[in-house]
């Protein structure tokens, strides 16, 4: 299990134990975290699991695929340098304690 701290649009934060290998999107939807939709189920096809990664740890993540970069251009909330699609980031031991902030809208 990897502890991920999700910050909902309301500002409320949840520390969730996410199974290793699950995506940050699955960790949120399976544990009742608000502010994330994940309409396409995790196949990188909808842009409704947009999140902001803790800035100081952004570089620890593997780089996004070309498909994710294309889709990030379509997200509903403001695109920032630390934006990612949560379905494309896997929870791994190295991400223990990562803070993931969810935007006010997923469109």
């Amino acid at each position: 299990m990897v502890s991920i701290i999700y910050v909902e649009p309301s500002g409320k934060s949840h520390a969730v134990n996410v199974e290793e290998g699950w995506s940050l999107m699955q960790g949120a939807t399976a544990n009742g975290v608000d502010g994330i939709v994940g309409e396409c189920g995790g196949s990188c096809a909808c842009g409704t699991c947009h999140c902001y990664i803790e800035e100081s740890r952004f570089a620890e993540l593997p780089a996004p695929s070309a498909g994710e970069v294309d889709l990030l251009d379509t997200v509903a909330a403001e695109l920032k340098p630390n934006s990612r699609l949560a379905c494309q980031v896997q929870a791994t031991a190295g991400l223990e304690g990562l803070v993931v902030t969810l935007p006010a809208t997923q469109g």
Binding site: G41, G42, A45
Partner: peptide
């Protein structure tokens, strides 16, 4: 029921969800 498996999930999640 968020996160349900009615369309599978992950890379092979159903193409036709929308």
């Amino acid at each position: 029921p968020r996160g349900h498996l009615g369309f599978g999930g992950g890379v092979h999640a159903c193409l036709g969800t929308a």
